[in-house]
């Protein structure tokens, strides 16, 4: 008898399969990958003011869009598509095979990561080409960027999988999940300059990961001098790291413990 394939090997194969399926759904490819670019085009054209010396609103907005892209692609996509897969029996079928749960999750992580990278490249390319976006030159900033993307997608993916038990059905999932994401975007400094929001709103936002991701991304794309204008007069990168790790742990805990393979 041959050996049963390892969980990692199957996870990588599932990732390939997920990407192939995603690429064949043309509408969702366009929506997921180009939506941030479309938003940048709209906001960048409407708000052409500078919010601090040398900082255009586009610059501020790109940082926020990359951060909220992490939340959209991971959390929103998974919290909506997993209940749909559960509804049609696809998850139950998988559960009946020797494929381990971890392989399914690894496949999702690969899908989210690949689509995230494509999204970021599109957004940055478009920003540089049309909205005078300044790319950071210091390698330390790119290092910050790298860990924010990695930790941010991990966090958002695990929370998306964890939250997938909340919608009762695939059809209602979008109605449950989308408002949460939109509200978070509004209060976390994606569409508005964070410090212009009322203090209580800032305090609520500070509980959730998106606020920290946007602030972290601003540390990458905005000049060092802008740190003084943040709520805490600093980029607070260490605190950001800790908060994202806590949310990642919460997401992982509920993903592993509470994941539902079938409608009850």
């Amino acid at each position: 008898m041959n050996k049963i394939p390892s969980a990692l090997e199957l996870g990588i194969r599932r990732g390939g399969l997920e990407i192939r399926q995603f690429a064949r759904q043309r509408e969702s490819v366009v929506f997921t990958l180009l939506f941030p670019v479309i938003l940048l085009a709209i906001f960048g054209s409407v708000f052409q003011n500078t919010i601090a010396p040398g900082v255009t609103f586009s610059q501020y907005f790109v940082a926020g869009m990359i951060a909220s892209g992490l939340v959209n692609t991971g959390f929103q996509t998974l919290a909506i598509t997993i209940p749909m897969e559960r509804d049609v029996g696809a998850l139950k079928r998988l559960r009946g095979t020797p494929m381990p749960a971890s392989s399914y999750f690894i496949g999702k992580v690969i899908l989210i990561f690949v689509s995230m990278v494509i999204q970021i490249i599109l957004l940055l390319g478009f920003g540089v080409a049309f909205f005078g976006l300044d790319m950071p030159t210091e390698s330390s900033k790119w290092l910050t960027f790298a860990w924010l993307v990695l930790l941010g997608s991990a966090c958002s993916t695990s929370l998306g999988i964890a939250f997938s038990v909340v919608p009762k059905s695939g059809r209602g999932a979008s109605a449950v999940v989308t408002p949460i994401v939109i509200v978070l975007q509004f209060i976390s400094g994606v569409f508005f300059v964070f410090t212009l929001l009322p203090t209580w709103m800032q305090q609520i936002a500070a509980v959730f990961p998106l606020k920290w991701l946007t602030q972290g991304m601003r540390s990458v794309f905005l000049p060092e001098s802008f740190a003084a204008q943040e709520a805490a007069q600093s980029w607070e990168l260490q605190k950001t790291f800790v908060i994202l790790v806590i949310w990642l742990a919460i997401g992982l805990f509920f993903s592993v413990r509470k994941f539902k393979w079938q409608r009850t």
Binding site: P5, G89, G96
Partner: peptide, 26 residues
């Protein structure tokens, strides 16, 4: 296990789907 009602309609071909599932088994 052949379940009662699966209606998952994937954007994969028949041969791709069966091929993928065959990879789960020893």
């Amino acid at each position: 296990i052949i379940l009662q009602s699966s209606s998952d309609a994937d954007d994969l071909t028949v041969v791709e789907t069966i091929n993928h599932f065959s990879g789960y088994y020893s």
